[in-house]
């Protein structure tokens, strides 16, 4: 199953490492990602496409536990598939 996760995080230099580490350790593989600085509040927007057999809600909850992550959103699974297809 492929999923798209959008998150907002504090703009610390290691924030992407933190997020990617959790994705890997909790059983998901990264397919595509992007990160963009936003002007307000020294935050970054991160979008991840991940695949994995495990329950995606568990990953969402683990990511939301990161102190630097201020907001997280899971795109509905069908929408993601088309997004991945478009990107491919």
């Amino acid at each position: 199953m492929t999923h798209t996760i959008n998150l907002k995080a504090h703009n610390r230099p290691e924030v992407m490492e933190r997020v990617l580490r959790v994705v890997r350790h909790r059983g998901f593989a990264l397919q595509q990602m992007s990160m963009q600085q936003c002007d307000i509040n020294q935050e970054v927007n991160i979008t991840l496409n991940v695949t994995g057999e495990r329950c995606i809600n568990n990953l969402e909850l683990q990511l939301s536990k990161l102190y630097d992550v201020s907001h997280i959103e899971l795109e509905a699974a069908t929408a993601i598939k088309s997004a991945v297809a478009m990107n491919a």
Binding site: C55, N57, N58, L61, Q62, S64, K65
Partner: peptide, 8 residues
């Protein structure tokens, strides 16, 4: 207290 423990 930890949401990530629920249904884990």
């Amino acid at each position: 207290i930890d949401p990530a423990e629920i249904d884990k």
